[in-house]
Design a binder for these strands. Structure first.
Lengths: 210, 210
DNA sequence: GCATCAATCTAAACGATGTCAAGATAATCT
DNA sequence: AGATTATCTTGACATCGTTTAGATTGATGC
């Protein structure tokens, strides 16, 4: 999470803000964390940043474009989290599970941000570029490639990455369901639950069998 | 898809509608299919049903409650689709894949409805009851139980069901991404792509290994 | 059959939202 | 310094979810 500037008030701020784009994105994230996604209106963001409702339109074409910027920051934060998880695990087997757990935990800890990242009400049918090029997606693919010793066809590698990503995303969206509470309890906590589900996915059974 | 009554016009419809609750839900689904989720406002639904903007409030507490009813219909439709897929497959192995493919295809063919079904802006952290009790979730669990010959601990059965559901949901949300187009092409169509991903998930590796 | 009552619908309004057009203000360039 | 451009504000518009008050109808009891 980047450092956030304090909300500007009328007396501290000059007519020209200086870096309103960034301030707006930060204000948006602040609102997301404190009041949830329902409260995230353009006007509320402008209010939080201390400017008029029309000011954002000089920096973003749309409300969508602001959200895109917020999502972008989210993907970068996810990158950081996954990199850390990857570095922490020693063997390649554990590394993969660790990645999955980190992914789901990121979604659990930043539910509002995660939702913005996957909100497809604006760009209907494409992944964010951030995800494909040099982003989290590649980290997963590289980890898989590493784990299988590089001896997997490009198509299989891509398929395995997609499979892993889908499983992670599905779990990320459901981890909060309270119907799972007894199961988590029985398994000794949420992380144990996560690991158990990932094991059941046996995501690399096919790759291992050749 | 249930039969839908035609949109009522001022001259055909008496002051009292007769069955406005149902008409509203049908109007909502009609809007979802033709204009997408962005156009689904309460006022638009009322307009489509031929009544005043305030009329829905005599049948639903909220906009959320209307959407809940729409989602309920969605879950029932999903039940039907899964039941059909289950009946069509002969052996229990194929039956499981068939279930998964049917699930994802349902989401692909009813993207707007699927989104409403999973929209957690109203009831944050619980699955719809429809899903757990005697619904699609049970169909998946039963199919897994059947496939493993019933010799699996309740916890493992539940975990496997969750794992399968997460994978299906994740794939359902991503199937439309155009980045997957070349891969689909290479594998000979979308269904082949789906099956390939499901195979890579190897969802029952653990259960099979005991 | 008719009066009463509850259910259902409309009309009108309120505050909030996304967005745009005009005008004010400040930074930058020549 | 003067002109130009970028940035911000004011004020407005259509739309939305929701509420209140009043109109219309169906049902109920006599």
């Amino acid at each position: 999470m980047p450092a956030m500037t304090q909300p500007a008030t009328a007396d501290t701020r000059p007519y020209h803000h200086g870096d309103l784009s960034r301030a707006l994105v930060e204000a948006a994230r602040r609102i997301l964390e404190t009041e949830g996604p329902a409260a995230l209106s353009l006007r509320a963001v402008a209010r939080e940043a201390g400017v008029s409702p029309a000011a954002p339109y000089h920096h973003f074409k749309d409300k969508s474009e602001l959200l895109e910027a917020v999502a972008h920051e989210g993907w970068m934060a996810l990158d950081v989290a996954l990199t850390a998880a990857r570095a922490k695990a020693s063997d390649s087997n554990e590394r993969m599970t660790s990645l999955g757990v980190a992914y789901v935990c990121f979604a659990r800890d930043n539910p509002a941000l995660y939702r913005v990242m996957y909100d497809r009400s604006r760009d209907k049918d494409s992944l964010p570029d951030q995800m494909k090029e040099e982003g989290a997606y590649c980290q997963v693919r590289n980890t898989i490639d590493e784990r299988t010793g590089g001896g997997v066809s490009p198509i299989d590698l891509e398929l395995a990455t997609i499979a892993a990503w889908c499983a992670g995303h599905g779990l990320a969206e459901m981890i909060g369901f309270k119907q799972f509470a007894p199961l988590k309890e029985a398994l000794g906590g949420e992380e144990a639950f996560l690991r158990a589900v990932f094991e059941h996915l046996g995501m690399f059974a096919k790759l291992d069998q050749g």
